[in-house]
């Protein structure tokens, strides 16, 4: 599964974006990412936002096409509208991105 993940906002207000191929991650994380980042779960996350929340993280996720039958799928949602299992996988993916970049610092 290839994807572009961007995480922005939060109390810090910064933005981190990267492209990932789950095949390059550990098999366990790749399996969980594929199970959690399913179109129906992500579509639910894009439901109307709670206007009272502040400093929440905003996610931009693009699932890249992998075969002739698939297309780009793009989702934009905040952490207060997504399911915990989706957020937990996104946290792990963000950590992979940060670790990688920090190593190159």
């Amino acid at each position: 599964m290839k994807l572009i993940l961007s995480c922005s906002g939060g109390v810090v207000g910064s933005r981190i974006q990267a492209q990932l191929d789950t095949a390059e991650l550990g098999a366990e994380l790749a399996r969980r990412a594929e199970a959690a980042l399913q179109p129906e779960k992500l579509a639910q996350a894009s439901s109307p936002e709670n206007p009272l929340r502040t400093d929440v993280l905003e996610y931009d996720l693009t699932l890249l096409p992998e075969g002739e039958d698939t297309d780009f799928r793009h989702y934009r949602f905040s952490e207060t509208s997504a399911a915990p299992e989706v957020l937990e996988v996104l946290d792990e993916l963000m950590q992979e991105i940060i670790r990688l970049r920090a190593r190159r610092r």
Partner: peptide, 28 residues
């Protein structure tokens, strides 16, 4: 809140604090 979660927020009813990942942030 969360694992290595790099944020703190107000959800309209309560405060929420992450532990940070130890790389970019420490506990909020």
């Amino acid at each position: 809140y969360g694992k290595s979660y790099n944020n703190a927020f107000w959800d309209g009813e309560q405060m929420v604090y992450g532990d940070g990942d130890g790389i970019l942030f420490r506990s909020f």
